[in-house]
C-alpha cells in the first residue's frame, strides 16, 4: 500500500469536514486550533495515509496538498 502525507492550509480550511468524511483510512480529524476566521481546521492526526487524494478531491476550499512517499 502506498504511503502519503496530507498538508492542509489552516487559513484556507473552513472546517466543513468533507475531507474527514471522505478519508477511507480515517486519518484526518478536526483540530482544536482556531484560525484567523474562527474555524477549526482539519489536520492529519494519525499515520496511515495511503495517498488516495480523496480529501483533496472533495475539498471545496482547495486547502489540501497531498504527497506520495516513495521508499
Amino acid at each position: 500500500m502506498p504511503k502519503g502525507r496530507v498538508v492542509i492550509d489552516e487559513e484556507l480550511c473552513k472546517s466543513c469536514g468533507l475531507c474527514v468524511a471522505a478519508c477511507p483510512t480515517k486519518v484526518l480529524s478536526i483540530s482544536d486550533k482556531v484560525n484567523s476566521k474562527g474555524y477549526r481546521p482539519a489536520t492529519q492526526a494519525k499515520e496511515g495515509c495511503i495517498a488516495c487524494k480523496m480529501c483533496a478531491t472533495t475539498c471545496p476550499d482547495v486547502a489540501i496538498t497531498v504527497y506520495r512517499i516513495d521508499e
Binding site: 487524494k53 476550499d61 482547495v62 496538498t65 516513495d70 521508499e71
Partner: peptide, 20 residues
C-alpha cells in the same frame, strides 16, 4: 525516500480564501 506531489491547487486558481 522521496516525496512526490500528487494533488495541489490548479495553476489557474488564485490562492485566496473564497467567500463561500
Amino acid at each position: 525516500m522521496k516525496e512526490v506531489l500528487i494533488a495541489e491547487r490548479p495553476k489557474s486558481m488564485y490562492k485566496v480564501s473564497t467567500h463561500y
